[in-house]
Simulated scan of single mutants.
Amino acid sequence: MTPLTSVLQAHQFHAVIPEPLQFGRGLIVDLSPASELWNKVTSTHNFADEIAYQATAMNAQIVIGRYAEQRLIYQDKANFSNSKNRTVHMGIDLGVPSLTPVFAPLDGEIHSIANHQGEGDYGPTIILRHQLEGIAFFTLYGHLHQAAHTQLHVGDHIQAGQQFTAIGTTAENGGWAPHLHLQIIEDMGTNTDDYIGVVDPAELDFYLRNCPNPNLILKCSDLD
């Protein structure tokens, strides 16, 4: 366990989205190659359709995509055209309606604001920088609603619990169903307003250390 992981595990954070959603009835989606979900996919009923069907059937308040899961859903996206080996998801996806508020889980400052508009990319993205018990780290929020944070600037202080953005629409979020991609990053390296969210399995050991499980912040018991 790294020092950052230990600190995050011991700390209580503000909810990232409204608590009734974050801690409500959840559908945890398995998008790995072995998932039974793929047996329900046809030429007229894609995986997003099946997830929506399952969520409605169980009256789910949130759809959750798992951390460190291997997925083969990216390879037909333009953003992955030069990186077909990237298959492991390094964030947690929180599937909730577009325009749902997004709150800072702890005090931080705006490290970067960007709008990555390639097919399959993050769309509008914010990265916050934090200090906790002397350890610096970052949280990345992808697939946002651009209009919700137009007044923000790099360097702005964001307080724990402050709404600083909202969930984006499919039209602006890289083409995905509305959701938040939350990722923890210990060291940004040479990256500025972006950080890889789906990695090559050959590099997984590094990214597991540098991008610990976002459930350390979310504290969703269903993901323990």
Rank of each mutant, 00 (worst) to 15 (best):
A160E: 08
I167L: 13
Y195T: 09
V154F: 00
I167C: 04
P212E: 05
W176K: 05
D156R: 04
A147T: 09
W176Q: 10
Q183A: 10
T169F: 14
N215F: 03
I167K: 08
V199N: 08
A171T: 07
D193M: 08
D187W: 03
L204H: 12
A166M: 02
A171Q: 11
G155F: 01
I158E: 00
D187A: 11
G168I: 01
G174P: 11
N213L: 01
A147C: 04
N173C: 08
G174E: 10
T192M: 08
T169E: 14
W176M: 11
G197E: 12
L204Q: 10
G168D: 03
T165S: 12
Q151M: 06
T169R: 15
A160K: 13
N191W: 10
T190R: 05
N210F: 02
L144C: 10
A177S: 15
A202D: 14
P201F: 01
H153M: 04
N210K: 00
D194Q: 15
G174K: 07
T169V: 07
P178V: 03
Q183H: 05
E172Y: 07
Q159I: 06
G189D: 07
M188P: 04
Q151N: 15
G175V: 02
D205L: 01
A147Y: 02
E203K: 15
G168T: 07
A148W: 00
M188R: 08
P178R: 09
N191K: 14
T192R: 05
A148D: 03
V199Q: 00
R209D: 06
H181Y: 03
N191L: 10
H149D: 01
P201M: 07
E203M: 09
T170A: 14
H145A: 12
P201W: 08
D205M: 05
Q159D: 02
A166V: 03
L204N: 11
Q146W: 15
L180S: 13
T150E: 08
H143E: 11
A166G: 03
E203N: 15
Q146I: 12
P212D: 01
L204A: 13
G189P: 06
L144I: 03
H179Q: 08
E203A: 14
N213Q: 02
H181N: 08
H179W: 10
I185Q: 04
N213F: 01
H179Y: 13
A171D: 12
P214L: 04
T169Y: 14
P214R: 00
T192N: 10
Q151C: 06
Q159T: 10
E203R: 15
I185P: 05
D193S: 15
N215H: 05
Q146K: 14
T170R: 15
T192Q: 13
D194W: 15
L152P: 03
P212V: 00
L208D: 01
T169A: 14
H157V: 06
Q183E: 13
T192A: 03
V198Q: 12
H145Y: 12
V199Y: 01
I196Y: 12
R209S: 05
D156S: 02
D187L: 08
D187M: 04
H143R: 14
T150F: 02
T190C: 05
V198S: 09
L204F: 11
A147P: 00
A171C: 02
D194L: 07
L182C: 09
D193K: 07
I184Q: 05
A177V: 14
G189R: 12
Q151T: 06
Y195I: 07
I185G: 12
E203L: 14
A202N: 13
N210A: 03
T150S: 10
A171G: 02
W176L: 09
N173I: 07
P178L: 02
H143M: 13
I158Q: 01
A160G: 12
